[in-house]
Design a protein around this nucleic acid. Structure first.
Lengths: 152, 152
DNA sequence: ACTAAATGCAAGTATGATGATGGCATTAAC
DNA sequence: GTTAATGCCATCATCATACTTGCATTTAGT
């Protein structure tokens, strides 16, 4: 099964930030609707995001979810690492019997390759902030509106 | 569940190349032993590798598996793409209801991020050939032997 | 011919992380 | 007190991956 935690968390954070900019109160129910899932599911992903100081929430009526710090200071790497725990992008086979030159050293070799791959992706994600991402989303929205009105 | 096809196929190919260099006949059973699985499982991964002209095999007694072309002309990217089909490294959520600015454009936005990540990893894998990898494995083997004898 | 040793392949089982829901106690505004 | 929100736990669902069993086929050697 493919891991959807990162894209889901990303949409949640971007949704919160956009709501904030638009002066709209954001709840887990609204986020859930925009994802097509239940509010409970959203709250589950909100747990690590809150723990890492990315978002924060208030209880009770008129409660909801807000950004916990500036979107300029949150990168996609922060979000990725926050919700995927220690899951590696590439994983070596566990429990390889050390019987030959290949099997005895493949683990160490593969670890090097996997680390390099992961570092490349994480660095790329670290170069994109939530603020940048929202800007890009809004740009895409403008183009979408442009395309839609061109049809008429 | 984590995808082990790439590390498994990698060990298979490196094992075949090492056997070839050492002048030893290689069979799916030997590869299976070095992986701790059945020969049938190895053969299953051999199917795409054969299809892509990376390895080739001969039937019957004294049959076995060989490299189909020079290890200098096979990159880790070739192996990765061969065995992982069209699986993406990062995947967007499917079926997002387009209800707001975020949900309507997140798909396109995420696709850009995912493509960039995948391109980075594939380019890195393309820079490593099977020949290079075997050299590195043998270097690790020397270090391993060095460490082992230093203990005595 | 016969046997041994190999591949090719189809069918099926297992598993476990991920995906997702429901329910309920708690909190806070009005 | 009612309403509307979060926090969190227990649970179910599913599905891609992991792997085995089993057997037909092919080929080499005697």
């Amino acid at each position: 099964m493919i891991d959807l935690r990162f894209p889901t968390a990303l949409q949640i954070v971007l949704g919160i930030q956009i709501a904030e900019e638009d002066g709209v109160r954001c709840t887990s129910q609204k986020l859930a609707d925009s994802l097509g899932v239940t509010a409970s599911f959203v709250r589950r992903l909100l747990v690590p995001l809150t723990r890492d100081g990315i978002v924060e929430s208030s209880l009770g009526k008129r409660g909801g979810v807000r950004m916990a710090r500036s979107p300029k200071n949150i990168t996609l790497r922060d979000i990725y690492c926050c919700v995927t725990d220690d899951k590696r992008l590439l994983t070596a086979r566990p429990d390889i019997p050390c019987q030959c030159v290949a099997s005895a050293n493949i683990g160490e070799f593969f670890e090097g390759v996997a680390s390099e791959a992961e570092a490349l992706v994480l660095d790329m994600l670290a170069r994109r902030t939530v603020a940048d991402s929202v800007t890009e989303i809004r740009k895409l929205e403008q183009m979408r509106i442009g395309r839609a009105s061109a049809v008429n």
